[in-house]
Design a protein around this nucleic acid. Structure first.
Lengths: 243, 243
DNA sequence: GAGTGGTCTAGACCACCCC
DNA sequence: GGGTGGTCTAGACCACTCT
């Protein structure tokens, strides 16, 4: 009886999944590109097509790859987002799904506060870009955003290019800096609006707001963005499916 | 060349999945039970083991079944919930994951309000049980719950049995009424506490609270519970992963 | 050792897309 | 028609659990 000692057994498809992820990190295939066909990958990695399939299935389930029957398998992209933008769980209570308008309030370069440092794995003293925005549904100010991005990763970020971009913010980051967000963790609280916040959202000071703190991750579960969204929920809600 | 006309093609594993779901609805296997082995199911449905596997994989991904290598596949249950109770996304900011204590405030029988009627597909005039609870983390009142359950589905629900049960509320429903929740949809807003709510949660009237509205579904995506949780987020947060 | 789920393979065929 | 992903099968072997 030979038990073959399997300390830390790793299924083949898991290793393939890691290899594909590494190619994504290395930029071998860019967002929107087709990756090689299953048969090609199978021969490259010397495994059967079924094993490659299972690896791709897992990555597709994580929204990192997108399969399109008859065409191929593609690297997920924020560039051509149609319905609601990914990650945005807030939507108006009435009316069709809608892409919010964005008004840029300010862009600055600052020392990362302690929390941002910790959550984004930055060294002490690291600098970040701080972006403040006001999002509007049908012209009504609804969300006040503060976004923190490490300067080291987003070199050359400029107010002008931020102002001139169309579409989703993550699509902008993907296009200009080659950084694609694949998932995010959010912590939500209810808070009272400060005077400044209330003025921007056109409500009374002390009004209850949703406070949504988010850390967004790119390939390899690397945290690269922190943001706080203060959301007026008189006419919209944060929607979530729990399983 | 025969194209065989495939109007509304349904993969086999999808049909198997439906058959298994129907057995669950019919109560052929109860929560916590093992279902027949893959080989048995394959021979029962006259398909290969691989096809049964794919159907079970899908149900396991939805947390309806639970696979345990070497032992079998089991019907998911709320009965022996260990870590945090399923569906509860709120947890204290500091300290270990914790099962909240529950204080029953009231149980009554009422006409379903319009919203509950609509969300639970009830006929006009249907009656519901209304349960009010106060949940406490480490003894600190944190969540005020109002739960609506159709009387028709939860016949004989009594205050005494509610008071005497231990463990999770959904575990109680599963044990006494054979109804297992498999998923829920939540809509979250920030609201100001009314005087009554504030008194129960021991905060000032007007304090911001998370308002979490939930519809919970059982097998076959049938809505069977509506609830509203008002949550004090001074020391806890609603945590969510976005993908 | 017997039984269960988990992995991996090889091959046939279908559905979809595009040329 | 040729390429791609999607389905289905049959069989071998591995890993885990229990007796």
């Amino acid at each position: 009886m030979k038990t073959l000692a399997s300390p830390s057994f790793r299924p083949l498809y898991d290793q393939i999944k890691i290899l594909i992820t590494q190619s994504l990190i290395a930029g071998e295939w860019r967002p929107g590109d087709a990756i090689p066909s299953e048969i090609e990958l199978a021969s490259r990695f010397h495994v059967s097509q079924g094993t490659v399939r299972k690896a791709i299935d897992a990555l597709a389930a994580e929204n990192i790859l997108v399969r399109r029957q008859g065409k191929g398998t593609f690297v997920a992209s924020h560039a051509q987002e149609r319905p609601t933008t990914r990650f945005l769980r807030v939507s108006p209570d009435a009316g069709a799904i809608e892409f919010p308008g964005s008004e840029l309030l300010s862009v600055s370069r600052e020392r990362a506060p302690e929390r941002t440092q910790r959550l984004l794995d930055l060294r002490a003293g690291a600098t970040i870009f701080v972006i403040r925005r006001l999002l509007k549904f049908s012209g009504v100010a609804s969300i006040l955003d503060e976004i923190h991005l490490p300067c080291a990763l987003f070199k050359g970020l400029e107010e002008n290019s931020l102002r001139s971009h169309r579409g989703s913010f993550y699509g902008f980051l993907e296009g200009h800096f080659g950084i694609t967000m694949i998932r995010a963790e959010e912590r939500i609280k209810a808070v009272a609006a400060t005077a400044d916040q209330a003025a921007l959202l056109k409500v009374a000071a002390g009004s209850p707001l949703l406070c949504v703190d988010r850390v967004a991750y790119t390939y390899g579960d690397r945290p690269v963005e922190w943001r706080r969204g203060l959301c007026l929920t008189d006419n919209c809600s944060y929607i979530n499916e729990v399983t």
